[in-house]
Nucleic acid binder design. Sequence first.
DNA 1: TCATGACAACTACAGATGTAATCATGCAGG
DNA 2: CCTGCATGATTACATCTGTAGTTGTCATGA
Lengths: 133, 133
Amino acid sequence: MPVASDETRDSGPDRISEAEYAVMEPLWERSPLTALEICEVVCSRRDWSLATVKTLLSRLVAKSAVATEPDGRRFLYTPLLEKDEYTGSESLRLVDRLFGGRAAPLFAQLAEAEALTDDDLAEMEALLKELRK
Amino acid sequence: MPVASDETRDSGPDRISEAEYAVMEPLWERSPLTALEICEVVCSRRDWSLATVKTLLSRLVAKSAVATEPDGRRFLYTPLLEKDEYTGSESLRLVDRLFGGRAAPLFAQLAEAEALTDDDLAEMEALLKELRK
DNA sequence: TCATGACAACTACAGATGTAATCATGCAGG
DNA sequence: CCTGCATGATTACATCTGTAGTTGTCATGA
């Protein structure tokens, strides 16, 4: 018979919150980092205390979004969830939820909000050309 | 001196949650609607009770996202927040948070996730042509 | 050796969110 | 006239989120 499943459920792809995302950012820039190094980056931007960063880090560890590696006294944190994985799934979620899975209306919205820079237009044009080839 | 500000703060553009969004959808399709009519649309999809829909409606009213108009015994609900307003600001938020305000990387992500249909590509191409004119 | 300081772990707590049950009230039918 | 259904209002409650304070532990320098 199979081993009785212990409580450490794999939990699937737990969504990470906005505050947690802020903690991931420095890790995506460079890793591994200590809690203090992460705080140096985000605590000023968000006016957080080091304790807050640590709480968020432990939640991220619980969600298997970052890994820890002991380094003597402290821990080094490394992202497990890749940035592209995250931005990709969030983007898909938005398109699905708000635009019925169609990307064109999203694009139209952004255009209407004048959120498209000339650079964006140029890059997208290039991308489109590539895709239709 | 200025009038002492009373407690009814205008509260600004309160964000609406995902569940609340589900209640807005039928209203954007057709309005005004009664709570029951809304439930007929969403309660099956989300496996909700009528009570849940009513709670969400009252939260939306509190956030000034929908308006009520008495109709004898019950209320008729009408959206105040327009769909485009919502999808637009959500889209902007996503682009800002995840892609530093640039839309091109978002589309690159979607392309990579193969979330762009041929129709999307065609529509976007047309729109691009329009925008660069 | 002993106090200090640096960390991670644990605890806290208010507000938002998801999901409803219960309360109150007024109209419609007997 | 009274009672029951329909409907909004009020209350409930668990979980998630944002934001920390407090505790326990160890290593290091006096």
